[in-house]
């Protein structure tokens, strides 16, 4: 009796699904998605007929695949488990375009081009530093990729130092490459992180939320103690306050933030600021 319904339900069919109908839903690695041909879901019955990536080049729609999605030939595959998200292009709803990504909760970092990360120098070999960023293999960092570095004027970097840098090469087939300068050759905050302070790890989701433009936690923490803080997209946080005690408190509060509700957090912050 339920035969027709079962056949048409998305769970039982393993074929590709339309990305737009999956927004906010859980996707699993290996699933295939289809991008909609046009924005209007009301246009004819042909809305089901969707554009495969690269199959037909549409001049105006630009689709960006964020973390958790990968282009594989003309197919769009999910590589992470999480919720599918979408952001309309900033230019306005031209339809079909925008950014798609998978919002996931994980700890293992996968290098992404353009991400700012904190790495630990593990080796010096010739003209390169090997930097551990928490990915599957260490990133390479040229000693020329520092502000003001020349062949003669080498940066002072020791094994075990912390580096705040940015990925310029990051894909699945090649060794990731970092730099500590922007396109103008300026450090722009990147480089070797000071010798004091504490490095600790949190989940990648927490980092993303902390780095969101209007994150309350950062504003509240800033009122607590004077501090220096660096967030790496690879889940590492470096923090330094005046005393060791304060640094420890900040590190523990940031770590605990993930599992606290807003009220709990507010309570703890107010208690901390009193003491």
């Amino acid at each position: 009796m339920h035969c027709w319904i079962m056949a048409a339900s998305p769970i039982s069919s393993s074929g590709p699904r339309v990305a737009r109908t999956m927004l906010g839903q859980v996707v699993l690695p290996g699933e295939e998605l289809l991008l909609p041909d046009s924005a209007g879901p009301g246009t004819e019955g042909s809305a089901e007929q969707t554009l495969r990536l690269g199959a037909v080049v549409r001049p105006r729609t630009r689709v960006v695949c964020g973390p958790g999605l990968r282009r594989c030939g003309d197919r769009l595959l999910v590589t992470k488990c999480g919720r599918l998200r979408h952001k309309e292009p900033s230019g306005g709803g031209s339809g079909g375009g925008g950014v798609y990504w998978v919002d996931s909760q994980q700890k293992r970092y996968v290098p992404v081009k353009g991400d700012h990360v904190i790495g630990i120098v593990t080796a010096k070999s010739g003209d390169l530093f090997k930097v551990d960023v928490g990915g599957s293999e260490p990133a390479s960092l040229s000693y020329l990729a520092f502000e003001g570095a020349t062949k003669r004027n080498r940066p002072n970097v020791q094994v075990g130092d912390l580096i705040y840098g940015q990925f310029v090469v990051a894909n699945k087939d090649m060794e990731p490459e970092m730099v500590c300068i922007d396109s103008n050759g300026r450090a722009n905050g990147m480089g070797v992180i000071g010798q004091d302070g504490l490095l600790f790890k949190v989940t990648l989701g927490l980092i993303r939320k902390l780095l969101a433009p209007d994150c309350e936690i950062i504003q509240e923490i800033g009122k607590l103690y004077p501090l220096e803080i660096v967030f790496g997209m690879n889940g590492r946080i470096w923090v330094k306050a005046r005393t060791i005690q304060q640094t420890l408190i900040l590190a523990n509060v940031l770590e605990a933030c993930e599992h606290m509700t807003t009220e709990q957090r507010k309570q703890i912050f107010s208690r901390l600021s009193e003491s």
């Binding site: 630990i120 593990t122 551990d132 928490g134 599957s136 260490p138 020791q158 075990g160 130092d161 912390l162 992180i193 000071g194 010798q195 004091d196 302070g197 504490l198 490095l199 600790f200 470096w238 060791i244 005690q245 640094t247 420890l248 590190a251 523990n252």
Partner: peptide, 27 residues
């Protein structure tokens, strides 16, 4: 896979904290 190396700053911080009788998790 290789172990995540311990950075110099972590090492220094830990030792200094231990000298001050403090531990990372507040114990």
């Amino acid at each position: 896979m290789k172990e995540t190396p311990l950075s110099n700053c972590e090492r220094r911080f830990l030792l200094r904290a231990i000298e001050e009788k403090k531990r990372l998790d507040g114990r």
